[in-house]
Amino acid sequence: MIDFPLSPNMLMMPRKLPHSAWLGHIPFASWLVEVVRPKSIVELGTHNGASFLAFCQAVETQQVSARVFAVDTWEGDEHAGFYGNEIYAELRDYQQRHYAGISEMMRMRFDQALEYFADGSVDVLHVDGLHTYEAVREDFETWRSKLSPRAVVLFHDSCVRERGFGVWQYWSEISSQFPSFEFTHTHGLGVLLVGEEQPQALLQLAEAARDGQFATINQFFDALGRNIKNVEEIERVNQGLTAAHGEIGRLNAEEARLRALLEKNSDATEEHYAIVESQLPSLAQGLSLLERRVIEGMSDTRQALDHSREASVANVVASVIPRLDEQDRKLNLLVRPWWRRALGR
């Protein structure tokens, strides 16, 4: 039976909880910082920063002289999905306010960041970029020269076997070449002890995995990680409830406004109908008068045409148009809106 010492650092509760599949591994990440005491932590693929911020918090809390580097384009990929600048901006703002002195966000491709790190300088490398077999292998092989004599490499999503994920395939190859162990919860996390100068605690876990005695340790960190995931879920539910209450309040206010508007418009409509109804008799009388005048005008026009057959067309038109204009003016006066008549418009 493995003699595994407990540590308060395993109980670290993250100050910020981005929604992430990595939350279940934060207890191990905090403990890893304790046993390795790294000087340089580099992660390839950060997204919304769950692991990055956990490493930063562990370094700060444990007063480890280390710097944490997050390398990512913050554009996404076929596995993480593609997204806009808002994720980078939010994480950058938080990092600058809380961890500017111990961390750095490097917005570039993984291969572009290589030149900023000396060979043998990286103590912890977290590989969490594109999860195809080819991409994971390339990430490890191109960064291998940067690893220190006590380097530990983490491979996230080592248990996912869908959507073209190939971490599991590369892990099955590389894990046989170095001391290693793997957590199977939270999509899996492969831990590869690449450097020859490893802490005894990590070597014991690798030995337990080799001897088939790692299940209890896996369950232990799974339970610790589940607590963090539960807290994050509760926070998300509370945020959802707060948003729902706000929306309910907004809808209630909108309903009240619409009711008031409806009542006001109802009163105005009844008043309008009353005015219109009072105008109906005169309107009917006016239409009747208009009808008579149109008929009379048509008769006068016919008479004028009969009496002017020998006259020129221009004279006929000149005699008819004024009468038609006068009829049009009277028609417009009768049918225009009541409120225009009231205002003399």
Rank of each mutant, 00 (worst) to 15 (best):
F4Y: 12
L6P: 06
L6W: 04
M10H: 00
M10V: 01
M10L: 07
M10C: 01
M13F: 11
P14E: 01
H19M: 13
G24P: 03
G24S: 06
H25S: 04
P27Q: 03
W31P: 00
E34T: 08
V35F: 02
V36P: 09
V36W: 02
I41L: 06
I41A: 01
V42H: 02
E43K: 02
T46D: 08
G49D: 00
A50M: 07
S51A: 13
F52Y: 09
L53R: 04
Q57K: 09
T61P: 05
S65K: 10
S65Q: 13
A70H: 08
D72G: 09
W74N: 05
W74V: 03
E75Q: 14
E78Q: 12
E78L: 11
H79A: 08
A80R: 10
A80Q: 12
G81L: 01
Y83Q: 00
I87F: 03
A89Q: 15
L91T: 02
A100C: 07
G101I: 09
S103C: 01
S103Q: 07
M105E: 07
M106W: 06
M106T: 05
M106N: 05
R107A: 12
R107S: 10
M108N: 05
M108I: 08
D111W: 06
L114D: 03
Y116E: 14
Y116S: 15
V122D: 02
D123E: 00
V124K: 02
V124P: 03
G129H: 09
G129I: 10
V136C: 08
R137T: 08
R144L: 10
P149K: 05
L154V: 01
F155P: 04
D157E: 01
C159H: 11
F165C: 09
G166F: 06
Y170C: 00
I174L: 01
S175A: 06
S175P: 05
F183L: 02
H187E: 13
L189P: 05
V194A: 01
E196C: 03
L203A: 05
Q204Y: 06
E207I: 03
R210K: 12
G212N: 09
A215H: 10
F221N: 05
F221E: 00
A223S: 12
N230L: 06
V231G: 00
E235V: 00
R236F: 01
V237S: 00
G240S: 12
L241A: 13
I248E: 07
I248A: 12
R250E: 06
N252H: 13
A253I: 05
E254N: 12
E255F: 13
A256N: 11
R257N: 13
K264L: 10
T269W: 15
E270W: 14
E270I: 14
H272E: 14
Y273D: 13
Y273I: 15
A274N: 14
E277V: 12
L280M: 15
A284V: 11
A284H: 12
Q285C: 09
G286I: 04
G286E: 05
L290D: 02
E291I: 11
M298V: 15
T301G: 02
Q303I: 08
L305H: 04
R309K: 13
E310V: 07
E310K: 03
V313Y: 08
A318G: 11
S319V: 09
S319P: 03
P322T: 08
P322N: 11
E326T: 10
L333V: 10
W338K: 07
W338E: 04
L343A: 10
